[in-house]
C-alpha cells in the first residue's frame, strides 16, 4: 500500500468503462466528486453522501458499490463501470435502458443511473429473478417520482428478454 499524505494530491490510475484513465485526488476526495468533477463524467449522481439513497451506485470490479462511500484513491488500479458504460459504443441503449424507456421507469432521472448499475450487476448474476427479488434489490435505492412500478417491470422484462434471446 502506498503511503498517502493528507492535503497532497495523488495520481489515481484506473479503468473507467473499459478505458484507462488517470486523475489527481487528495486522499479525502470522495470517488463521486472525483468522477464528476475531476474525470468529468457526470452521469453518476449524488443524492445523500450517507450511502442510503443509492443514486451514486457504480460497479467496482463488477460489484455494485456506493460511489459516495469510497475515496477516489481506493479505485487505483481497479475497474470502474458507470452509467456511461452501459450502452453500446454506437450510442444504442442497452436492453435494460431500453426497457426503462418502454416502461416509463424514470421521471426526473436523477436516481436512475444508480438503479441501472445495481440492476446491471444483479441481472448478470441472477438472470431470471422473481418480482420479490427485484424489489429486494431495488430497496437499496430511493426514487421519489415513479412509485417503482415501471422500474420493477423494466427489470423483469429485461430478464425475460435475455432469457428468450
Amino acid at each position: 500500500m502506498p503511503r498517502l499524505k493528507a492535503g497532497q494530491r495523488h495520481e489515481v490510475a484506473f479503468t473507467l468503462n473499459g478505458v484507462a484513465v488517470r486523475g489527481e485526488a487528495e486522499p479525502r476526495m470522495l470517488l463521486t466528486d472525483f468522477l464528476r468533477h475531476v474525470i468529468g463524467v457526470t452521469g453518476t449522481h449524488v443524492g445523500c453522501e450517507h450511502g442510503v439513497c443509492g443514486a451514486c451506485t457504480i460497479r467496482l470490479d463488477g460489484v455494485a458499490t456506493r460511489g459516495c462511500l469510497l475515496f477516489a484513491v481506493q479505485v487505483a488500479g481497479r475497474d470502474v463501470k458507470t452509467v456511461e458504460g452501459l450502452g453500446g459504443s454506437d450510442g444504442r441503449l442497452s436492453p435494460l435502458q431500453e426497457a426503462f424507456r418502454r416502461n416509463h421507469a424514470l421521471q426526473c432521472g436523477f436516481c436512475t443511473a444508480g438503479i441501472l448499475m445495481s440492476l446491471d450487476d444483479f441481472l448478470e448474476k441472477n438472470p431470471s429473478p422473481t418480482e420479490p427479488e427485484v424489489r429486494e434489490v431495488l430497496s437499496g435505492h430511493l426514487c421519489r417520482c415513479t412509485g417503482y412500478t415501471g422500474i420493477v417491470r423494466a427489470a423483469l422484462e429485461t430478464a425475460k428478454g435475455n432469457a428468450d434471446a
Binding site: R36, V41, T42, G43, T44, H45, V46, T82, V83, E84, L86, G87, G91, L93, Q97, F100, R101, R102, H104, L106, C108, G109, F110, T112, A113, L116
Partner: peptide, 19 residues
C-alpha cells in the same frame, strides 16, 4: 408515447445543475 427526455437521462447525459 415514449418520452423524448429519457435517452439522455438513461445514458448519463442529463444536464442537472451540478453537471
Amino acid at each position: 408515447l415514449k418520452r423524448v427526455e429519457d435517452a439522455a437521462l438513461l445514458t448519463g447525459r442529463g444536464r442537472f445543475i451540478d453537471d
